[in-house]
Design a protein around this nucleic acid. Structure first.
Lengths: 250, 250
DNA sequence: CGTTTATTTGAGACAACTCAAGTTGCGTGG
DNA sequence: CCACGCAACTTGAGTTGTCTCAAATAAACG
């Protein structure tokens, strides 16, 4: 169980004051314009959204927002990785996922945050006032369709995790988790075999519903068998074929 | 693992041939007009939907549709209970939920069914051609908003299940499952303490990621401790307070 | 009434958990 | 620059809950 951390978000004012044309250019430069949620929007829609967008950065291990707080903002991740988690009545922490570039955080359909989010590494995000988002949502049918699709994709990811948690043995769980993690970094380079962040083992444990010790021993076994290699900067995938085998083993 | 069952759906022609006014009346009589997905629609929207709606019934233990097939229809459950499940590469079956009256089955956003559905008891549903649904979806922004909300609710239910599966011990899992099941029958009568269907233990096991034997032993323990009482017709809840205690125990 | 399917029970194995102790890495302050 | 403290990671030993395998009811179905 992690102790509660202080929220620390830095808003970049320059972006807030930029002219319309400049803001559109911010989107132009963004490598995500054709990835994730943004890719579903037309240029016109992007321009309108950019008009109300602000940039924020979050330092590693700091909170972006907390479960239960009023949902003031909706976020789109530009870079970095965040852990998303819920806390349950008995105090147990359930990590519900990891947000990567292109992901939409929080839904305008909720008044309060369904989950907390903290940064695992330096994170940069666009954010929008929920009210603006709702207004846009009600005005533009194509936009609400895009949102429906985004939520639907999140639903399918949640189902993936259900399949993962339904597994009984530790090795397939960890293997599948590692593969999913790699996938989320492979959208640029198909041959990528490096995940460039260190995901705390405690987070993996709370994601997969196991103890830290078991996660650790499983990772150690994978490392000993030269399937992966864990370094300070992240995880190297040495034997993808074998890892996939393990992931699919019952 | 259940053997594959034959799809057997009976379409009620009389409804298909009913006049516009009569169809609206079908909605009027439906006790679900203010529950679930339908409750989010205006009378005008309901009338348009009813225009393309057909009624179907499914016998117990028969399939309504199968994972991977082309999504021709979208369904709304009127009565009965269905199990929804996916089959994974290794052959494992993951029950992803149980559909109750008012629930929307399948998304027009998918070309193919994400999951299979079979009836646990006699089931009656409204169904719509996916194409009609999409057309409506694109034409009416308020309708796509309603759909987004429906998908979002499904997402939150999926997160509930994630929390459930994240649990390590068997008793809290089964207890929480039972409470959720009861809840889905308590929308009319708050004091309801009876679930009037027999959910096969194999389905519970594949839902919770445990074996039939463990599910059985856990249920037996609950019954021995007079927390529940399992009969042919369903489950009686004798000690809700105790069950909630167990559900929240770590 | 025989055949199939679902539930129940037992005994034993084993994987994951608990508890406890050590190690490593890293930032802070002397 | 080193000493210190804290948090994350690692390792070991022992326990236990769940799974596996096997077999005996009990129900459902034609």
């Amino acid at each position: 169980m992690t102790s509660s951390r202080q929220t620390s978000v830095r808003i970049q004012k320059d972006s807030a004051k930029a002219s319309f044309a400049e803001k559109v250019r911010v989107c132009d430069y963004c490598e995500l314009r054709n990835r994730g949620f943004c890719s579903r929007l037309t240029d016109a829609q992007k321009a309108i959204l950019a008009d109300t967008a602000r940039l924020v950065t979050v330092e590693p291990n700091k909170a972006l927002f907390r479960q239960g707080d009023e949902t003031e903002n909706i976020y789109i991740v530009r870079s970095g990785l965040l852990r998303l988690y819920q806390r349950h009545l008995n105090g147990r922490r359930q990590v519900i996922g990891f947000a990567k570039p292109g992901d939409l955080l929080l839904s305008p359909l909720n008044e309060r945050n369904e989950y907390s989010a903290d940064a695992l590494d330096p994170v940069c995000l666009c954010h929008f006032r929920r009210q603006d988002f709702i207004a846009f949502f009600q005005r533009d049918p194509a936009f609400s369709a895009a949102l429906a699709i985004a939520i639907h994709e999140e639903l399918m990811r949640a189902r993936q995790q259900i399949a993962l948690l339904g597994q009984k043995r530790a090795e397939p769980k960890v293997a599948q988790f590692l593969l999913t993690l790699l996938e989320s970094y492979a959208w640029r380079n198909v041959e990528a075999t490096l995940v460039p962040v260190r995901v705390p083992q405690a987070d993996i444990a709370d994601f997969l519903g196991m103890t830290v010790e078991t996660v650790n021993r499983t990772l150690a076994r994978f490392a000993r068998d030269a399937i992966i290699s864990v370094a300070k900067r992240g995880i190297d995938f040495l034997d993808l074929r074998r890892l996939k085998q393990i992931a699919e083993s019952y």
